[in-house]
Design a protein around this nucleic acid. Structure first.
Length: 243
DNA sequence: CTCAGTGTTCAGTG
DNA sequence: TCACTGAACACTGA
């Protein structure tokens, strides 16, 4: 029989007790699954709706045998077909929330456009960037600028667009904004095309060589990779090609 | 034991 | 008020 199981975690369940959360989902039908940036929610046949953010790490697991309930599970939904869906979150930086209208609720209502679903024009991007004095790397990480771009995607985009991550956003020329936009679109499309399976990302991507802050790291073409902290995050970049 | 890590928020600063 | 920086949060795995 279908049901909802919740782990007693007052950090990951934010603004709602696991008990109330379970009551809101029990017996409901899922009409659609929506996403904006790093936030995902289920449209149910009655509000409020459950919304998920994974923080660093965390996943959805699908299985049928109750014994396969994964480590670090926070929520398990058992459907009337006997399929189980669990949300995991080992590091507890993720959040499970309940909103009558997720798109109008914080923090989702503050997000910029999702570049995979709704890529802004070069002209729009250039207009926004003109008002950003901070480093372009930090601007790309700002979810209010574009929703969903995280640390590795930002580095990959700047590498492929050949832009120095320290450049002020407002210093980019129209041609550079165009390059940034084109690289962003290509990287997102490609990553989704392989179901975000990193092993299938193209060989030339910085992604494969950026982990671990290895001082000897090189690109596939042999250029030196350096690591700086920009916008509060480790930034891997290649001075020989990024200007 | 130390450090890095697919993230976000908030206090402090200029 | 705007905008940026760095610390804090929490925990695993190398």
């Amino acid at each position: 029989m279908p049901g909802i199981a919740t782990a007693p975690d007052p950090i990951v369940f934010e603004g709602v007790t696991p008990r109330r959360f379970g009551a809101a989902l029990r017996g409901r039908r899922v009409l659609a699954v929506r996403r904006k940036g790093k936030h995902l929610w289920l449209e149910l046949d009655r509000r409020p709706w459950p919304t998920f953010h994974f923080g660093m790490g965390g996943d959805f697991h699908v299985y049928e045998n109750p014994g396969e309930r994964p480590r670090y599970w926070k929520l398990e939904i058992l459907t009337d077909r006997g399929v189980r869906l669990a949300m995991t979150n080992p590091r507890r930086l993720g959040r499970i929330r309940l909103f009558p209208e997720p798109t109008l609720s914080p923090p989702i209502h503050r997000l910029g456009p999702d570049p995979y679903l709704d890529l802004p024009s070069s002209r729009m991007l250039a207009g926004w960037l003109a008002r950003r004095p901070g480093p372009i790397k930090a601007v790309l990480l700002d979810q209010g600028f574009l929703a969903g771009v995280g640390n590795w995607i930002a580095d990959e985009v700047l590498f492929q667009a050949r832009l120095d991550p320290r450049r002020p956003g407002r210093s980019l020329t129209a041609a550079e904004v165009g390059r940034l936009r084109r690289c962003l679109a290509r990287i997102l499309t490609r990553a989704v095309a392989v179901d975000a399976d990193a092993e299938r990302f193209p060989r030339g991507w910085l992604f494969h060589r950026r982990w671990g802050r290895n001082p000897a790291a090189r690109t596939a073409a042999g250029e030196r990779i350096v690591f700086d902290t920009i916008g509060g995050r480790t930034t891997a970049w290649v001075p020989a090609v990024q200007r």
